[in-house]
Write a protein that binds this DNA or RNA. Structure first.
Length: 492
RNA sequence: CGGGGUGUGGCGCAGUUGGCUAGCGCAUCUGGUUUGGGACCAGAGGGUCGAAAGUUCGAGUCUUUUCACCCCGACCA
């Protein structure tokens, strides 16, 4: 494991992939571009789900479920929307198989062709809005605040574990409102929910901001985003929230009678985060020893490794450990005693480090005699020997400290790699070295695209809460006047 | 779809200009010794070399065809 891979080396993607596999999070499936999420990886995802779901519910959102299949015709209603997804859709054309007439295997029964093809959802706006049409007639029916946890399929050309897979898990919220103001407020509220989650639970510093027109969601009037910096300096879009205006309401003819008795189209939002967050977690905090989990997201917060020579010692150590476990559980922590007796302690240390467990306790005959325990923290890889008295409270505080430290470290890294840039020459060079560059932009999609073609860098966002810089200046590329700086970066 | 690469036990690889019984590391199984940072020793099991056809006394190795996967692009809210 002493492999020479620093987070910013050329081998970053190799490091990432190895880590995802070795930490037992996921593996490539036999199906092209798809991924198997293994129990340990899924446990982390479940933690994310649970925390987000509770936050959604606090904002009045309810869960629902809509079909996986969407009739093709639904897609043709919103022109911009279909243009954004048409190239990556899986299409169901038949509904039956038959034995191959030549006796080998099975073939698609040509008789079973569907009259109208079904699209496997790449996102659910269309099916949800065709459903909302039936739910909404009066202003009294609004707002509708639904979320669904589901899978979606996007037939991407190139895939990477968690970051871009052909099928992925996510949540998509879809709301309908009587006024534009209310919908915009909702889109804002939800991006804030994401930002809070990223910062406080994932220990991931994110920049909240608006997407530029060129990066906006297909069919949206405004897209809000949380953008995170990975350890190679590239940007990762970790979540988005869209103000859809009346586009979908008009396409699917969803009108309501307002208080004045007039017909009006409803206003919409949609917002989502996906298993891509797992990728963000790996790339933001992982090191050469493996995953580093923030305590609030760790399925196991504390692991205990007994050290012994004889059965007698083993029993004595384990007894003590179960005692500590109970005390920690009483404080609300999740604890695992690694009592596997076929593996040596050193192996277990390495394994739990790989899996990112925040705190490890080791205890052997020496400790038993002295009334101590060895406490190791994953984020700094430091160890110290502590007295057993008051250990549970100490660990509890330590977990909180680790949570804060991981965030602080990621924040310091990001701040060190965000710079203002006013020279196009400098921009072209610096952007390739893994920086977020704060630059003036003239606001046109033409300039945005020209920069993208020249450097692959995109406008990650027009920041709202950090790195906000409202000042007069000249566009980095075109030289035209600009009123503010935006964030440019190479992204995943 | 363009450029490059790889297919050999579960995983990772070696296999010279064709040559005899296809090898190594990891993993697995058995026995023993170990256990405070990924244990050691001894033994065992497991592959017909991506697939098909061809050349040859003889093919993992040469030829042709084909399939699959990976990387770089194109693509990607």
């Amino acid at each position: 494991m002493a492999k020479e891979v620093t987070p910013r080396s050329d081998n970053y993607s190799q490091w990432y992939n190895d880590l995802a596999l070795k930490a037992d999070l996921a593996e490539q499936s036999a199906v092209r571009g798809c991924m198997v999420i293994k129990p340990y990886g899924y446990a982390i995802w479940e933690k994310m789900q649970g925390t987000l779901d509770a936050a959604f519910k606090r904002t009045g959102v309810q869960n629902a479920y809509f079909p996986l299949f969407i009739p093709k015709s639904f897609f043709s209603r919103e022109a911009e929307h279909v243009a954004g997804f048409a190239k990556e859709c899986a299409v169901v054309t038949h509904h039956r198989l038959m034995n191959n007439p030549d006796g080998k295997g099975v073939v698609v029964d040509p008789e079973a062709k569907l009259e109208e093809e079904l699209i496997v959802r790449p996102t659910s706006e269309t099916i949800i809005w065709s459903t909302y049409k039936n739910w909404i007639t009066s202003w009294r029916d609004l707002p509708i605040l639904c979320n669904q946890w589901c899978n979606v399929v996007r037939w991407e050309m190139r895939t990477r574990l968690f970051l871009r897979t052909a099928e992925f898990l996510w949540q998509e919220g879809h709301t309908a409102h009587a006024t534009a103001e209310e919908a915009e407020a909702k889109a804002n509220e939800m991006v804030q929910v994401y930002a809070d989650f990223a910062r406080n639970v994932m220990a991931l510093p994110v920049i909240v901001g608006h997407k530029s027109p060129g990066e906006r969601f297909a069919g949206a009037l405004d897209t809000l985003t949380i953008e995170a910096m990975m350890q190679d300096g590239k940007a990762l879009q970790a979540g988005t929230s869209h103000f859809l205006g009346q586009n979908f309401a008009k396409s699917f003819d969803v009108q309501f009678t307002n208080k004045e008795g007039r017909q009006e189209y409803v206003w919409a939002t949609s917002w989502g985060v996906s298993t891509r967050l797992m990728g963000a977690l790996i790339m933001a905090h992982g090191d050469d020893n493996g995953l580093v989990l923030p305590p609030r997201l760790a399925p196991i917060q504390v692991v205990m490794v007994p050290i012994y020579k004889t059965d007698e010692q083993r029993n004595a150590v384990l007894d003590k450990m179960y005692e500590i476990k109970q005390a920690l559980e009483a404080l609300g922590h999740s604890v695992k005693v690694d009592d596997r007796d076929t593996l040596r302690p050193g192996f277990k240390f390495a394994e739990w480090e790989l899996k990112g467990v925040p705190v490890r306790l080791a205890m052997g005959a020496r400790d038993l005699e002295a009334g101590t325990v060895e406490v190791a923290r994953r984020d700094t890889l430091t160890k110290e020997t502590m007295p057993l008295a008051g250990i549970a409270e100490h660990i509890s505080a330590l977990l909180e400290d680790i949570q804060q430290s991981i965030y602080a470290k990621a924040l310091a890294f990001r701040d060190a790699n965000v710079e203002k840039c006013d020279s196009w020459e400098e921009f072209q060079q610096k952007i390739q070295t893994g920086k977020f560059l704060l630059c003036h932009w003239d606001g046109t999609i033409e300039t945005e695209q020209a920069i993208k073609e020249a450097t692959k860098a995109t406008i990650r966002c027009i920041p709202m809460d950090s790195y906000v810089c409202e000042e007069e200046g000249r566009d980095i590329f075109s030289g035209k006047p600009s009123k503010r700086r935006v964030v440019f970066a190479i992204s995943y």
